[in-house]
Design a protein around this nucleic acid. Structure first.
Length: 220
DNA sequence: CGGCCGATCCACT
DNA sequence: GTGGATCGGCCGA
């Protein structure tokens, strides 16, 4: 599998996102190599997109989104989960594609060792936080250039990997729909893309406002 | 399988 | 102080 050219990512994020389906993300970690063939992604279109972390401008957390394409933006959420994006161009537009799900095609035993709660191989990278765990990615990878051959984390052309994990094959039909967990004005945009019929695609969950535990101190 | 809910903590207002 | 680009356990159908 060949590395993808920088120009692949230096395009509007809505063009890049569907093209990432079938592409392979590989991490060479301490415990071994794990590679995931992407089956589901979401586009976040910079400061014009209310659903984007860059919507309110640049902050320390989202700074990588404003940088060059091909680097990864990794963020922490819900107090315990890491999620990974790939930054897309054009420059000056903080676009990024959230990697939501994929099929583990290399290093399944290693991924199983990390994903202790996973009960079946298809659940290993079914969901954005599961995917980062399976690959062994956390906040330490924020800003890494995934197109640099020296990086432990790399994005590779998946055109030699089929749905069975080995033989060349087609990627199948690309479908699209609303993004998962996005509320407010950005909710209606059909910027989630997935491969039809893939078992590793995560189930759709609409955004819900959640109650908070009563902020009770113990009674005096 | 689908719905509900708690966990857990950080970024931003 | 508020709520989140989520997950897994538990329950009922």
């Amino acid at each position: 599998m060949a590395p993808l050219p920088r120009a692949f990512f230096d395009r509007p994020v809505l063009e890049v996102a569907p093209d990432l389906l079938g592409v392979v993300v590989e991490h060479r970690g301490e415990e071994g190599v794990v590679a995931v063939r992407l089956t589901e992604v979401e586009a976040y279109d910079g400061e014009a997109d209310p659903g984007s972390h860059a919507f309110r401008g640049r902050t320390p957390r989202n700074a990588v989104m404003f940088g060059p394409p091909g680097h990864v933006y990794v963020y922490f959420t819900y107090g315990m989960h890491w999620c990974m994006n790939v930054v897309c161009g054009p420059e000056g537009r903080a676009g990024a594609v959230l990697l939501r799900a994929g099929q583990v095609v290399v290093g399944e035993p290693v991924a199983l060792g990390r994903r202790t709660t996973s009960k079946s191989p298809r659940d290993l990278a079914r969901g954005p936080a599961r995917l980062t765990v399976a690959l062994g990615i956390d906040g330490g990878y924020d800003g890494v250039d995934a197109l640099d051959p020296r990086s432990a984390l790399r994005i590779l052309s998946g055109d030699r990997v089929g749905p069975d994990g080995g033989a060349p094959g087609t990627n199948g039909t690309v479908r699209s729909g609303p993004r998962v967990g996005v509320s407010g004005d950005g909710a209606g945009r059909p910027w989630r893309f997935w491969l039809d019929g893939e078992p590793s695609v995560s189930s759709y969950r609409p955004a819900v406002a959640r109650r908070r535990a009563p902020s009770g101190r113990l009674s005096p």
